[in-house]
Each structure stands twice: as C-alpha cells, then as structure tokens.
Design a protein around this nucleic acid. Structure first.
Lengths: 205, 205
DNA sequence: ACCTTTAGTAAACAGTGTTCAGAAAGCCGT
DNA sequence: ACGGCTTTCTGAACACTGTTTACTAAAGGT
C-alpha cells in the first residue's frame, strides 16, 4: 500500500517539477521561446521523459492555465465577498486589472495566447472560465436589480465590463499603448477604469 | 533608364507576391503555422530567395502590419469626417469593432500578436499606431470641450475607449467568450458597445 | 566576346516538437 | 540472493522550423 502510494506521490512530484520549471522559464523567456528540451535540461531529465507526464507541450500550457485561474480566484476571493453589489463589482474589476498587471505571464496565457487553447476552451475542461464569468454575471445581475445597466442584457453588460479591463490589460501587456510614456501607462489605465466605474456604476438618483 | 526602372518594378512585384502569398497562407493556417518554406513553395521560389527581399520573417509580418493599418484608415475615413465630435467618436468606435470582426487576421497581427513586433513598435517606425491614437485623442478632446469625460485626462479617456472595443474584439477573436453561444457573441459585443456609447457619450443635460 | 553585377538556389546549421526501440532501475515472488 | 517482470528513462531518429553561405545561372554593360 505504502509503496504504490509513494509511486503516485513521486509521479505527482515529477509533474510539479516539470510545471515549476516550465513556469520559471516562461517568465524569463516568454512562452514561445521555451522548448521542451530547455525544460528537460532544467529538471535534469531527457526531453522524452516529459512526454511520460504530459501528452504534449500544450498539456503543460493547459495545466499552467488552470493554475493561473486558481491564482485569480484566490486573488479575488475577498473582493467577491463584499455585500453591496456595486462596490463588489468595482472591486472585482479593479482586482482583475491588478492581477493582470501583477502576473502578466499567467494573464497572457489565460486570456491572450493563441495556440490550440481555444480548441480546449470549447470543451467541458474549460470549467474555470465559465465559473469566473458566472461570478461576474451574477454581480452584474444584482446591480441591474438596483437600476444599473438599464436596457442592456445581463450577459452583454458583463461582457462589456470584462472587455474593458481585459482591453486595458492586454494593450499594456502586448505593449500596444507605447504612444503613452512607459512610466505612466499603468496610471492612465487605472484612471480609465475609474472613468468606467464613475460613469457606469453611478446609481441613478 | 527604363531598364533599372523595370528592375525596380520587378523587385517590387516580387515583394508583393511574397506578401500576398504570406497573407493568404496566414488567413488559412494562422500566422504561427506559416513557414518560410510554405510561402516559398506558394510563389514557386526557393526559401532562400525570400531572404533577398525581407530581412527575416518578422519583416514580412511588419509589412502586413502596415497594410493592416492602411486598411483600417481607409475603413475609418468617412467616419472621421463627421462634424459632431460625439457622433464621430461613436462612429469611430463602432467602425473599429467592425474592422476587427471583418478582418480578424489583420487585427490579430496589428494589436494582439506577440513576436518581436513590440520591439519595433517602440521605434519610430510605429507611425501608424501613433497617428491612429492621435486621431482618437483629438476627437475625445473635442468631446471633453462639450462636457464629456469630466475629471479624466484626455489620454486616459482615449485609452479607456480604445481598450473597450479592443477588449471586445480580442476576446471574440481569441475565442475567450465561448461561454456565450457562438451565434450571439457578436450581437452581445455590439450591445456592450451600445451600453458604453449610451452611458459615456451621453451629453450632460 | 568578356567581365561584372545581380538573382536564385542547394545544402547545411542549429534549433524545434514528438516518437520509439531499447537500456536501466525498481519491485516482486521465490 | 536471485531471476523475472514492470515501470521509468533515454539516445537516436524523424520531420519540421528560421536562417546563412557558398555556389550557379542569368543579365547588363562595355
């Protein structure tokens, strides 16, 4: 009993080691520039070994992708508990942007990377994304009960709000906002988000 | 005179042929999956020949990138002429989203692709992006003169508006909005944009 | 006709993801 | 302690990738 127990644990440890190495290399060199061989070298095993633990390179990606969502949920946990839905929504949006800027590598791979991920996202595996979106729609729906987002379907409003912060995050991460001075981009992004919050989350008098 | 004229023309024709082939293949298979060899095969030349006309693969990318901006400017030309700045801004935002959804391949490579493009964007070569952003800030500034976007710096407001439509476009293109039914995603995106237009572009009474 | 410049290419280099036959190691029953 | 069995690992190969270099073939100028 203990022996196959240990084997299982070792198998899990190997998986973790690979993921850890992949994550570190990714943070340094960007995902495209991390090869299986480099990961193998880092964990001091042969490249072929990695394929005993992961179907292919995208499987590693997908595991990191899920870890990213776990991080995001942890990051947003407290904000999600706020009673007042308007304050909660505001906090969630600000927290989301914060997460994106704090963990650009994870954010990139969760919401911006191409690769075969889109195919996976279409499947049932894509639990986390749906869960996160449901959390948002629920809050938006509560806000609508208070009179916000009138004349807009809940899903459309949720998509719009999400898009705004995602837009800010992705333009900054992919360096498309370089017409603005480097050291001010984040400040401008925060100010833009404040603008949204001010106009969209203003309760009708 | 005519002879070096012809040589120059032939050189230009070759460049165009490469770009055309690259663009077609890109639209079919996605940029990452187009190899120099495939482009070479399509134009019936050896792979090495391509390097006589382009420094490297990214140079091809950058040319297509510029062509994309030309397309975008053409697309937005009429909308940019509208007198009323609020109506103009509304039109520009809607036109931008329309462009992104009509030409997802170009949009992808202009605003979402990673690669060494970000490095290039930092340089003076990045004329088009700055020009497009200036056009937007100018319109936003005129809107502010009418009382819109109070308490927000012009650049922040412009960044925010741009981010909103970019967010919608990029989530749809990278298939991150798949929690919404496929055939409704575009409708939801349009509705979200209408929501922004309604709330942000509502003139103070 | 000869020489120079240009255009094009085959072959190679170093890298990639992935597979597979076979070596090495660990576990088990005797 | 020893074979035999199973799991774990790897070297080598395959088919790709972007890119460079030495070379050939053609065209232009004189």
């Amino acid at each position: 009993m203990t022996i196959i127990d240990r084997k299982l644990r070792e198998k899990q440890e190997m998986r973790s080691a690979i993921l850890e190495a992949a994550k570190d290399l990714f943070a340094e060199d960007g995902f495209q520039n991390v090869s299986i061989r480099k990961i193998a070298e880092k964990i001091e095993y042969s490249p072929a070994t990695i394929y005993l633990y992961f179907k292919d390179k995208d499987a590693i990606l997908f595991d990191l992708h899920n870890e990213g969502f776990r991080k995001l949920f942890t990051h947003q946990r407290d904000r999600a508990k706020v009673k007042d839905p308007v304050q909660r929504l505001r906090g969630l949006l600000e927290g989301y942007l914060e997460f994106a800027l704090d963990e650009p590598e994870y954010y990139d791979l969760m919401f911006m990377l191409f690769t075969p991920l889109p195919k996976v996202i279409k499947t049932a595996e894509w639990r986390f994304g749906r869960r996160a979106f449901r959390m948002l729609t629920k809050t938006v729906s509560e806000c609508q009960a208070l009179g916000l987002f009138k004349g807009t379907r809940t899903e459309a409003a949720a998509l719009g709000l999400w898009s705004s912060v995602h837009g800010l995050a992705s333009l900054l991460i992919r360096q498309r906002a370089s017409m603005l001075p480097d050291n001010e981009q984040v400040a401008f992004a925060r100010e833009a988000l404040d603008m949204f919050n001010g106009h969209l989350l203003a309760l009708p008098a």
